[in-house]
């Protein structure tokens, strides 16, 4: 076999606590990122992504503690994203045990951040997170897919396909691609966007944004050509376990690391 699709739950963390309604019945503390990480690890998650959405700068260090404690308890790879602006920001997270750092707005503003991170820590530590929307007005890029920043609020005029090629050239080891049109809709990935980007680059692509069913996960790989699929709510609310997701993907002919 060659490509083994990864299933990645994503946890939003604010001031060191998981937010956006995680709903497992038997958790001692549903807001504890480390307890949730351990739960997803047990279910067979291939990696974890923590997105730090902490707004106030005096609580930024809380995510470093999340990384530190996760590395003590969980022996699968995990990525931290959100608020990483400098090589030093990334170093603090990697030193305490994070495997990768994801950069988004700061890299659009200053693309050298990606090459600086890749040179300092290696490409495998650098995930370029790209938020894209379809746009069709006069200012839209020719591909029809435009890069947005600041959590999908700010237009950049940059073509998502061009930017994906650029982050690869700069040294990103992976692209986390989120359709801001689909994010939160549960209508499934934007397959055309995912396939366009995935086929355009030589690095792995994580599809993100819009998963509402287990079929959507399989479609991200089969139709979207993504190497990994990321989802939040379908796992957090206890509707489906990671094992359910993997068994379904296997039944659709997608190769995954089977649940234990």
């Amino acid at each position: 076999m060659t490509n083994v699709a990864r299933v990645i739950p994503c946890l939003d963390v604010e001031a060191g606590r998981v937010v956006k309604g995680v709903n497992f019945l038997d958790l001692v503390d549903a807001g504890d990122p480390v307890e949730l990480a351990a739960r997803y690890d047990e279910q067979g998650a291939d990696e974890l992504v923590f997105l730090d959405i902490t707004a106030s700068s005096d609580q930024r260090d809380t995510i470093v503690e999340v990384a530190r404690h996760t590395a003590e308890e969980v022996f699968i790879p995990f990525t931290i994203g959100g608020g990483i602006r400098t090589v030093d920001d990334a170093r603090r997270l990697l030193r305490v045990g994070a495997d990768k750092t994801a950069v988004n707005t700061a890299a659009v503003r200053r693309p050298e951040l990606i090459s600086d991170l890749a040179r300092e820590f290696g490409s495998q530590c650098v995930v370029a997170s790209i938020d894209a929307r379809r746009s069709a007005d006069a200012d839209a890029p020719a591909s029809g897919f435009e890069v947005y920043t600041h959590g999908g609020r700010t237009r950049t005029g940059i073509c998502a396909v061009t930017w994906a090629n650029e982050v690869e050239r700069l040294g990103a080891g992976e692209i986390m691609l989120t359709s801001m049109d689909r994010d939160g809709t549960r209508d499934g990935f934007d397959i055309e966007l995912t396939q366009t980007i995935s086929d355009a680059v030589g690095v792995p692509v994580i599809a993100s944004g819009g998963v509402g069913t287990l079929d959507h996960l399989a479609e991200g790989v089969i139709d979207g050509h993504a190497e990994a699929v990321l989802a939040a709510s379908i796992f957090h609310f206890g509707e489906h376990t990671i094992a359910d997701a993997k068994n379904h993907m296997l039944s659709r002919g997608v190769t995954v690391r089977p649940p234990q």
């Binding site: 490509n3 083994v4 990864r6 495998q124 080891g173 030589g202 190497e227 690391r257």
Partner: peptide, 11 residues
Amino acid sequence: EVKRPQMQWNQ
């Protein structure tokens, strides 16, 4: 002929 890096679980 494959994506690089290999970034995945394998047997």
